[in-house]
């Protein structure tokens, strides 16, 4: 960890101001000289590991009063970016009307982390690629653009099979983002010129040739809230992992179905643990829509979700695992009592 300046932002304007002041426009956000601090469970870790070296951190926790609301009235759900993972996971209305959200949060990290961590920080968490998190490796395109990728032919069991590029195969590790992308969430962003909204699906960027650019946020911008347009009581989050708790997904599926008279009117399939960004499997969704559910259909949808998957030495198993998991999650969603 290197010495840094600590600032506390007591209102959004001040936060944006402090973050923009330090930002050079051409920096990718992850390299910006000033970084917002929410729960700190990703940021402080990465600073201790010397992976992130901000000159300043801007503590946005004082904004919690305005930015941590959980608004569940009506069909629409609005979640403040500073709401704690644990509070959202435990919220009765969310458990009932948006089980995929509650469970994606409940199955993430540990109780202690969920008590500290915020929704905004959660979607912005960075990859767990061991080579990225260890600065003694010189070859990581995400950390040092153009330096190569140690994971490509290294220990890559945890790495992605979807959305990869020849520059980076790092997995997007979070769980909650799968639920957001599945449910067509929008993200509200507060910046110098006020607030704007965009589809959550546009927040993360696949690595392509610039794995160091992870999101479309600009330095000086903050996530202030997420909204989900409608309820999805028939939704599940399934997560396969090496241990029973406190572990990232090897593969996960966020599934939401709208079934009427045995017919699937709408279907949402998002994948975690297997892709470089929160991943929406639209091919699977279109196979499901307008069909009657059966196990064969679930399998075909799962196959479609992984049609473009590319495995490497240690992670090829994720393709068949992911398919089995998606099929199982679809079965569970279709038979769930709502």
């Amino acid at each position: 960890m290197r010495s840094f300046l600590y600032q506390r932002a007591t209102d959004p304007g001040m936060a944006v101001q402090a973050l923009s002041a330090a930002a050079a426009a051409n920096n990718p956000l992850t390299q910006a000289a000033a970084q917002p601090l929410a729960g700190g469970t990703t940021l402080i870790d990465l600073m201790k590991l010397d992976v992130m070296r901000p000159a300043a951190i801007v503590d946005i926790n004082p904004l919690a009063r305005g930015w941590s609301g959980i608004e569940t009235g009506g069909e629409k759900l609005r979640l403040g970016a500073l709401a704690k993972m644990s509070d959202v996971a435990a919220h009765a209305d969310i458990q009932r009307h948006y089980p995929v959200i509650a469970n994606s949060l409940r199955l993430a990290a540990s109780a202690q982390l969920r008590n500290m961590a915020t929704l905004g920080g959660n979607v912005m968490q960075r990859t767990r690629c061991s080579y990225f998190r260890d600065t003694s490796y010189d070859n990581c395109n995400k950390r040092i653009p153009g330096s190569g990728c140690a994971a490509m032919d290294g220990v890559n069991r945890m790495h992605a099979v979807l959305g990869t590029s020849d520059q980076c195969i790092a997995t997007y590790p979070g769980d909650f983002a799968q639920a957001l992308i599945a449910l067509d969430a929008t993200v509200e962003i507060t910046g110098k010129s006020g607030t704007r909204s965009m589809p959550f699906a546009q927040l993360h960027k696949a690595p392509g040739n610039t794995p160091d650019i992870e999101t479309t946020l600009q330095p000086g911008e903050l996530i202030s809230a997420f909204s989900i347009p409608r309820r999805w009581p028939r939704s599940v989050y399934l997560k396969a992992r090496d241990r029973q708790s406190y572990e990232f997904a090897l593969s996960s599926a966020a599934i939401a179905l709208d079934v009427q008279d045995g017919m699937i009117r709408d279907a949402r399939v998002a994948l975690g643990g297997v892709a470089t960004v929160p991943w929406r499997a639209r091919e699977a969704e279109s196979l499901l829509k307008g069909q009657k559910f059966d196990d064969g259909l679930a399998r075909r949808a799962a196959d479609a979700a992984f049609a473009d998957a590319k495995g490497r030495q240690h992670n090829s198993f994720k393709i068949s695992l992911g398919k089995r998991l998606v099929a199982r999650a679809l079965q569970q969603a279709s038979t769930m009592e709502v």
Partner: peptide, 14 residues
């Protein structure tokens, strides 16, 4: 490579 407690897994209570 996995020289830390996030990557070198040991059991949790569950």
């Amino acid at each position: 490579v996995n020289d830390n407690f996030a990557d070198y897994l040991v059991p949790v209570n569950a």
